[in-house]
Amino acid sequence: MNPTAPAPLRARRRRDQRRRPVFAIAVTVVFFVLLYLPIAMVVLFSFNAQKSLTVFKGFSLRWYEAFFHDNVLLGSLGMSLEVSLVAMVGSVVLGVALALGLVRNKGRLGTYAGLIMMVPLITPEIVTGVASLLLFKGLGITLNSGTVMIAEITFSISYVTVILRSRVAALNPEVEEAAMDLGATRWQALRLVTLPALLPAILASAVLIFALVFDDFVLAYFTTGVDPQPLAVRIYSAIRFGVEPTINAVGTMMLAGSITLIGLALAIPRLFGRRGGLDLISGE
Protein backbone atom coordinates (compact mmCIF):
# COMPACT_ATOMS: atom_id res chain seq x y z
CA MET A 1 0.00 0.00 0.00
CA ASN A 2 1.22 3.43 -0.82
CA PRO A 3 1.94 5.23 2.46
CA THR A 4 1.89 8.67 0.83
CA ALA A 5 -1.69 8.29 -0.42
CA PRO A 6 -4.16 10.63 1.26
CA ALA A 7 -5.92 9.11 4.23
CA PRO A 8 -9.43 8.73 2.79
CA LEU A 9 -8.07 6.95 -0.28
CA ARG A 10 -6.07 4.63 1.87
CA ALA A 11 -9.16 3.78 3.89
CA ARG A 12 -11.06 3.16 0.67
CA ARG A 13 -8.36 0.85 -0.65
CA ARG A 14 -8.41 -1.11 2.54
CA ARG A 15 -12.17 -1.45 2.31
CA ASP A 16 -11.94 -2.58 -1.32
CA GLN A 17 -9.41 -5.19 -0.44
CA ARG A 18 -11.53 -6.55 2.32
CA ARG A 19 -14.63 -6.67 0.12
CA ARG A 20 -14.93 -10.25 -1.06
CA PRO A 21 -17.07 -11.16 -4.06
CA VAL A 22 -19.40 -13.35 -2.00
CA PHE A 23 -21.36 -14.64 -4.97
CA ALA A 24 -18.30 -15.61 -6.97
CA ILE A 25 -16.77 -17.35 -3.99
CA ALA A 26 -20.00 -19.26 -3.28
CA VAL A 27 -20.15 -20.45 -6.91
CA THR A 28 -16.51 -21.50 -6.69
CA VAL A 29 -17.09 -23.53 -3.54
CA VAL A 30 -20.08 -25.35 -5.11
CA PHE A 31 -18.03 -25.87 -8.26
CA PHE A 32 -15.19 -27.52 -6.36
CA VAL A 33 -17.60 -29.77 -4.44
CA LEU A 34 -19.30 -30.94 -7.65
CA LEU A 35 -15.95 -31.30 -9.41
CA TYR A 36 -14.56 -33.69 -6.83
CA LEU A 37 -17.69 -35.53 -5.62
CA PRO A 38 -18.01 -37.87 -8.64
CA ILE A 39 -14.34 -38.78 -8.36
CA ALA A 40 -14.70 -39.27 -4.61
CA MET A 41 -17.69 -41.58 -5.21
CA VAL A 42 -15.69 -43.79 -7.55
CA VAL A 43 -12.83 -44.00 -5.08
CA LEU A 44 -15.16 -44.67 -2.12
CA PHE A 45 -17.11 -47.45 -3.81
CA SER A 46 -13.95 -49.12 -5.03
CA PHE A 47 -13.41 -50.01 -1.37
CA ASN A 48 -16.98 -51.18 -0.78
CA ALA A 49 -17.28 -54.59 0.84
CA GLN A 50 -20.60 -55.23 -0.91
CA LYS A 51 -21.55 -55.35 -4.53
CA SER A 52 -23.84 -52.32 -4.14
CA LEU A 53 -22.94 -49.25 -6.15
CA THR A 54 -25.04 -46.91 -4.02
CA VAL A 55 -24.74 -48.09 -0.41
CA PHE A 56 -21.38 -48.30 1.31
CA LYS A 57 -21.12 -51.40 3.52
CA GLY A 58 -17.67 -51.46 5.01
CA PHE A 59 -14.12 -51.37 3.75
CA SER A 60 -12.62 -54.09 1.60
CA LEU A 61 -10.03 -54.57 -1.11
CA ARG A 62 -11.95 -57.34 -2.87
CA TRP A 63 -12.47 -55.39 -6.11
CA TYR A 64 -8.77 -54.67 -6.39
CA GLU A 65 -8.14 -58.37 -5.84
CA ALA A 66 -10.73 -59.16 -8.49
CA PHE A 67 -8.92 -56.88 -10.94
CA PHE A 68 -5.57 -58.52 -10.39
CA HIS A 69 -7.12 -61.93 -11.00
CA ASP A 70 -8.91 -60.84 -14.18
CA ASN A 71 -6.71 -61.86 -17.08
CA VAL A 72 -8.74 -59.94 -19.65
CA LEU A 73 -8.39 -56.68 -17.73
CA LEU A 74 -4.71 -57.34 -17.05
CA GLY A 75 -4.17 -57.93 -20.77
CA SER A 76 -5.89 -54.63 -21.48
CA LEU A 77 -3.71 -52.87 -18.93
CA GLY A 78 -0.61 -54.30 -20.62
CA MET A 79 -1.81 -53.18 -24.02
CA SER A 80 -2.62 -49.68 -22.79
CA LEU A 81 0.83 -49.31 -21.23
CA GLU A 82 2.47 -50.54 -24.43
CA VAL A 83 0.42 -48.23 -26.64
CA SER A 84 1.07 -45.22 -24.38
CA LEU A 85 4.79 -45.86 -24.30
CA VAL A 86 5.16 -46.25 -28.06
CA ALA A 87 2.89 -43.28 -28.76
CA MET A 88 4.84 -41.18 -26.28
CA VAL A 89 8.22 -41.92 -27.85
CA GLY A 90 6.93 -41.63 -31.42
CA SER A 91 5.04 -38.40 -30.99
CA VAL A 92 7.81 -36.76 -28.94
CA VAL A 93 10.46 -37.57 -31.53
CA LEU A 94 8.31 -36.40 -34.46
CA GLY A 95 6.81 -33.48 -32.55
CA VAL A 96 10.08 -32.04 -31.24
CA ALA A 97 11.67 -32.28 -34.68
CA LEU A 98 8.60 -30.63 -36.17
CA ALA A 99 8.64 -27.83 -33.60
CA LEU A 100 12.31 -27.10 -34.29
CA GLY A 101 11.79 -27.21 -38.03
CA LEU A 102 8.65 -25.10 -37.92
CA VAL A 103 10.14 -22.24 -35.97
CA ARG A 104 13.29 -22.05 -38.06
CA ASN A 105 11.78 -22.96 -41.42
CA LYS A 106 10.19 -19.86 -42.87
CA GLY A 107 9.60 -21.37 -46.29
CA ARG A 108 6.50 -22.85 -47.87
CA LEU A 109 7.03 -26.18 -46.10
CA GLY A 110 7.06 -24.44 -42.73
CA THR A 111 3.81 -22.66 -43.48
CA TYR A 112 2.14 -25.88 -44.62
CA ALA A 113 3.42 -27.80 -41.60
CA GLY A 114 2.28 -25.05 -39.24
CA LEU A 115 -1.16 -25.19 -40.76
CA ILE A 116 -1.72 -28.94 -40.76
CA MET A 117 -0.47 -29.40 -37.23
CA MET A 118 -3.19 -27.03 -36.01
CA VAL A 119 -6.00 -29.02 -37.63
CA PRO A 120 -6.01 -31.95 -35.16
CA LEU A 121 -6.37 -29.49 -32.30
CA ILE A 122 -9.71 -28.25 -33.63
CA THR A 123 -10.92 -31.62 -34.88
CA PRO A 124 -13.16 -33.52 -32.50
CA GLU A 125 -11.75 -36.90 -31.60
CA ILE A 126 -14.65 -38.76 -33.15
CA VAL A 127 -13.74 -37.30 -36.55
CA THR A 128 -10.11 -38.32 -36.14
CA GLY A 129 -11.32 -41.74 -35.05
CA VAL A 130 -13.60 -42.21 -38.05
CA ALA A 131 -10.89 -40.97 -40.42
CA SER A 132 -8.24 -43.31 -38.99
CA LEU A 133 -10.61 -46.28 -39.14
CA LEU A 134 -11.42 -45.57 -42.79
CA LEU A 135 -7.76 -45.17 -43.67
CA PHE A 136 -6.72 -48.44 -42.02
CA LYS A 137 -9.60 -50.31 -43.63
CA GLY A 138 -8.86 -48.68 -46.97
CA LEU A 139 -5.21 -49.75 -46.81
CA GLY A 140 -6.27 -53.23 -45.73
CA ILE A 141 -4.48 -53.01 -42.38
CA THR A 142 -5.82 -55.33 -39.67
CA LEU A 143 -6.84 -53.42 -36.57
CA ASN A 144 -4.66 -54.24 -33.57
CA SER A 145 -2.45 -52.44 -31.07
CA GLY A 146 -0.33 -51.13 -33.94
CA THR A 147 -3.22 -49.21 -35.48
CA VAL A 148 -4.05 -47.71 -32.07
CA MET A 149 -0.43 -46.59 -31.75
CA ILE A 150 -0.43 -44.93 -35.19
CA ALA A 151 -3.69 -43.10 -34.47
CA GLU A 152 -2.51 -41.98 -31.03
CA ILE A 153 0.79 -40.69 -32.44
CA THR A 154 -1.09 -38.72 -35.09
CA PHE A 155 -3.29 -37.23 -32.41
CA SER A 156 -0.39 -36.41 -30.05
CA ILE A 157 2.16 -34.84 -32.41
CA SER A 158 0.26 -31.56 -32.42
CA TYR A 159 0.29 -31.33 -28.63
CA VAL A 160 4.03 -31.89 -28.44
CA THR A 161 4.63 -29.37 -31.22
CA VAL A 162 2.42 -26.72 -29.63
CA ILE A 163 4.13 -27.09 -26.25
CA LEU A 164 7.62 -27.09 -27.75
CA ARG A 165 7.11 -24.43 -30.39
CA SER A 166 6.85 -21.53 -27.98
CA ARG A 167 9.90 -22.82 -26.11
CA VAL A 168 11.92 -23.05 -29.31
CA ALA A 169 10.80 -19.59 -30.33
CA ALA A 170 11.88 -18.25 -26.94
CA LEU A 171 15.40 -19.61 -27.37
CA ASN A 172 18.01 -17.14 -28.40
CA PRO A 173 19.29 -18.33 -31.81
CA GLU A 174 22.54 -16.48 -31.19
CA VAL A 175 23.51 -19.10 -28.60
CA GLU A 176 23.34 -21.74 -31.29
CA GLU A 177 25.27 -19.50 -33.64
CA ALA A 178 27.87 -18.88 -30.98
CA ALA A 179 28.34 -22.64 -30.67
CA MET A 180 28.81 -22.82 -34.41
CA ASP A 181 31.25 -19.94 -34.38
CA LEU A 182 33.20 -21.97 -31.87
CA GLY A 183 33.36 -24.76 -34.38
CA ALA A 184 30.30 -26.91 -33.73
CA THR A 185 28.37 -28.22 -36.68
CA ARG A 186 24.67 -27.44 -37.00
CA TRP A 187 23.89 -30.90 -35.73
CA GLN A 188 26.29 -30.59 -32.79
CA ALA A 189 24.88 -27.22 -31.87
CA LEU A 190 21.40 -28.71 -31.95
CA ARG A 191 22.34 -31.74 -29.88
CA LEU A 192 24.63 -30.05 -27.37
CA VAL A 193 23.03 -26.63 -26.99
CA THR A 194 19.42 -26.53 -28.16
CA LEU A 195 18.08 -29.90 -27.03
CA PRO A 196 19.42 -29.62 -23.46
CA ALA A 197 17.75 -26.22 -23.18
CA LEU A 198 14.48 -27.80 -24.30
CA LEU A 199 14.80 -30.86 -22.05
CA PRO A 200 12.33 -29.77 -19.34
CA ALA A 201 9.63 -29.03 -21.90
CA ILE A 202 10.36 -32.27 -23.77
CA LEU A 203 10.09 -34.37 -20.61
CA ALA A 204 6.94 -32.57 -19.49
CA SER A 205 5.26 -33.08 -22.85
CA ALA A 206 6.30 -36.75 -22.86
CA VAL A 207 4.66 -37.34 -19.49
CA LEU A 208 1.59 -35.42 -20.59
CA ILE A 209 1.25 -37.46 -23.79
CA PHE A 210 1.65 -40.72 -21.88
CA ALA A 211 -1.20 -39.73 -19.56
CA LEU A 212 -3.43 -38.47 -22.39
CA VAL A 213 -2.93 -41.58 -24.51
CA PHE A 214 -3.38 -43.95 -21.59
CA ASP A 215 -6.71 -42.31 -20.74
CA ASP A 216 -7.86 -41.80 -24.31
CA PHE A 217 -11.00 -43.63 -25.20
CA VAL A 218 -12.48 -42.35 -28.46
CA LEU A 219 -9.51 -42.91 -30.78
CA ALA A 220 -8.71 -46.25 -29.18
CA TYR A 221 -12.33 -47.32 -29.56
CA PHE A 222 -12.33 -46.61 -33.30
CA THR A 223 -8.93 -48.12 -34.08
CA THR A 224 -8.57 -51.15 -31.81
CA GLY A 225 -9.05 -54.76 -32.78
CA VAL A 226 -11.22 -57.13 -30.81
CA ASP A 227 -8.70 -58.72 -28.49
CA PRO A 228 -6.90 -57.36 -26.59
CA GLN A 229 -8.59 -53.99 -26.20
CA PRO A 230 -7.14 -50.96 -24.42
CA LEU A 231 -8.23 -50.51 -20.82
CA ALA A 232 -10.33 -47.43 -21.57
CA VAL A 233 -12.32 -49.36 -24.17
CA ARG A 234 -12.94 -52.17 -21.67
CA ILE A 235 -14.11 -49.64 -19.11
CA TYR A 236 -16.50 -48.20 -21.66
CA SER A 237 -18.07 -51.58 -22.42
CA ALA A 238 -18.22 -52.38 -18.73
CA ILE A 239 -20.05 -49.15 -17.89
CA ARG A 240 -22.39 -49.49 -20.83
CA PHE A 241 -23.31 -53.11 -20.41
CA GLY A 242 -23.65 -53.55 -16.67
CA VAL A 243 -21.27 -52.20 -14.12
CA GLU A 244 -19.19 -54.44 -11.91
CA PRO A 245 -17.64 -52.72 -8.89
CA THR A 246 -14.28 -53.83 -10.31
CA ILE A 247 -14.66 -50.82 -12.59
CA ASN A 248 -14.47 -48.54 -9.54
CA ALA A 249 -11.18 -50.16 -8.57
CA VAL A 250 -9.77 -49.83 -12.10
CA GLY A 251 -11.04 -46.26 -12.25
CA THR A 252 -9.43 -45.40 -8.92
CA MET A 253 -6.08 -46.79 -10.02
CA MET A 254 -6.29 -44.90 -13.31
CA LEU A 255 -7.15 -41.69 -11.44
CA ALA A 256 -4.17 -42.17 -9.16
CA GLY A 257 -1.95 -42.85 -12.16
CA SER A 258 -3.00 -39.86 -14.25
CA ILE A 259 -2.98 -37.47 -11.30
CA THR A 260 0.57 -38.55 -10.49
CA LEU A 261 1.64 -38.09 -14.10
CA ILE A 262 0.02 -34.67 -14.43
CA GLY A 263 1.58 -33.58 -11.16
CA LEU A 264 4.90 -34.73 -12.59
CA ALA A 265 4.34 -32.87 -15.88
CA LEU A 266 3.56 -29.69 -13.94
CA ALA A 267 6.51 -30.17 -11.61
CA ILE A 268 9.19 -30.95 -14.21
CA PRO A 269 9.72 -27.37 -15.44
CA ARG A 270 9.98 -26.30 -11.79
CA LEU A 271 12.50 -29.01 -11.02
CA PHE A 272 14.68 -27.48 -13.69
CA GLY A 273 14.31 -24.12 -12.02
CA ARG A 274 11.79 -22.60 -14.34
CA ARG A 275 8.58 -20.91 -13.43
CA GLY A 276 5.14 -21.67 -14.73
CA GLY A 277 4.38 -25.33 -15.08
CA LEU A 278 0.80 -24.32 -15.68
CA ASP A 279 1.37 -22.51 -18.93
CA LEU A 280 2.04 -25.98 -20.30
CA ILE A 281 -1.66 -26.50 -20.11
CA SER A 282 -2.98 -23.10 -21.05
CA GLY A 283 -0.67 -23.41 -24.05
CA GLU A 284 1.02 -20.07 -23.71
Binding site: G101, R104, Y112, A113, I116, A131, L135, T154, T161
Partner: peptide, 27 residues
Protein backbone atom coordinates in the same frame (compact mmCIF):
# COMPACT_ATOMS: atom_id res chain seq x y z
CA UNK B 1 22.47 -25.09 -42.67
CA UNK B 2 18.88 -24.27 -43.49
CA UNK B 3 18.39 -27.70 -44.99
CA UNK B 4 18.56 -29.29 -41.54
CA UNK B 5 15.34 -27.49 -40.61
CA UNK B 6 13.68 -28.93 -43.68
CA UNK B 7 14.83 -32.41 -42.73
CA UNK B 8 13.48 -31.90 -39.23
CA UNK B 9 10.13 -30.64 -40.50
CA UNK B 10 9.63 -33.40 -43.05
CA UNK B 11 8.97 -36.57 -41.00
CA UNK B 12 6.21 -35.01 -38.90
CA UNK B 13 4.71 -33.27 -41.90
CA UNK B 14 4.65 -36.44 -43.98
CA UNK B 15 3.19 -38.41 -41.07
CA UNK B 16 0.42 -35.85 -40.54
CA UNK B 17 -0.27 -35.60 -44.25
CA UNK B 18 -0.72 -39.36 -44.61
CA UNK B 19 -2.43 -40.30 -41.39
CA UNK B 20 -4.44 -37.17 -40.84
CA UNK B 21 -5.04 -35.05 -43.94
CA UNK B 22 -5.33 -38.00 -46.33
CA UNK B 23 -7.63 -39.84 -43.96
CA UNK B 24 -9.89 -36.79 -43.66
CA UNK B 25 -10.05 -36.60 -47.46
CA UNK B 26 -10.94 -40.29 -47.46
CA UNK B 27 -13.89 -39.55 -45.16
Amino acid sequence: GARIWTWLTLPGTVWMSVFFIASLLLV
